[in-house]
Amino acid sequence: MTVSRPTGPDAPDISDVSVPSSLAELESEAVRHRPAFGENAHILCDNLVRIYKTEGVEVVALQGLDLLIDAGELVAIVGASGSGKSTLLNVLSGLDVPTAGVARVAGVDLLSMAARDRLRYRREVVGFVWQQTARNLLPYLTAAENVELPMRLAGARRRGRAGELLELLGVGYCARRRPGEMSGGEQQRVAVAVALANSPQVLLADEPTGELDSETSEEVFAALRAANRELGVTAVIVTHDVLVSEQVDRTVGIRDGRTSSETLRRASSDGRIVAEEYAVLDRVGRLQLPRDFMNELNMERRVRLQLERDHIGVWPEGAEDGTGRADGEAGGAESGT
């Protein structure tokens, strides 16, 4: 990548900026003006790495993933199979330990937890829902008993809590039914109730609608959204389901073990939902260009960057200088600052 600095009248004037005299000053200056990365985030992953070793072969499932989620957010995580979504969710739910990096959920550092802390974390901080309806519930317990189970495990059984949760999620009528007597959608909504039993701060769901038809998926997603909005639980949903990913405030894309894109949705002035897709820039300035953009412009190995006043232009190798506007506009991609 070649980088050119802007020159001419549009270039910013830096003559009046005071220059720090030493490295220590530089550092203190940085700390004074900028908060630490993800300081206020409810879920923080910084340069998260997870390597599996299977019979001598190393598989890098997470390759320096960064992720920030604020409290009360409803976030969907999407990505191709094998991109590391489920690994990320396992790490966040305390079922797996990352190899390196930083992972913090609700102020709990997931790398330095002792076994006892991990148990408490699973009991009190997170709740989760798996894809397979059968895997979420014990087949020989009723819905109410399944919901009560985490409370009993935590040693804090609250009477009526199970019924309340089931009512909230629209499956109050299933309280006395066993999983075998419920539909897939009902089972998943009960599973959401189980995940919420101990009032967790974070709800993690791994493809909760993966086995369901669209109508039932809608019901389950409604249950998840109800939990998010009415109980204030931060919800992270790994999904392939467009119905789900298009209804959340933010969708994070993962590619090859890294966050690659984010789609933010907001309501426009005329009431329509406007979705804007962003590429993710990590702390050291790396970003993943969308694969179809690269294919379109035959970008391979090297690109040329051009810093403009309000954006950065990216040109494939061999294209004309970025200042030649006609060429640059036609053959390059530009990144706004």
């Binding site: 148990l119 699973r122 009991r123 895997r135 189970l149 495990l153 101990n198």
Partner: peptide
């Protein structure tokens, strides 16, 4: 399956 589930839901190893 059941034990793994209750372990994941917060049961201690002793339990």
């Amino acid at each position: 399956h059941g034990l793994a589930l209750i372990r994941a839901r917060g049961a201690s190893l002793a339990r």
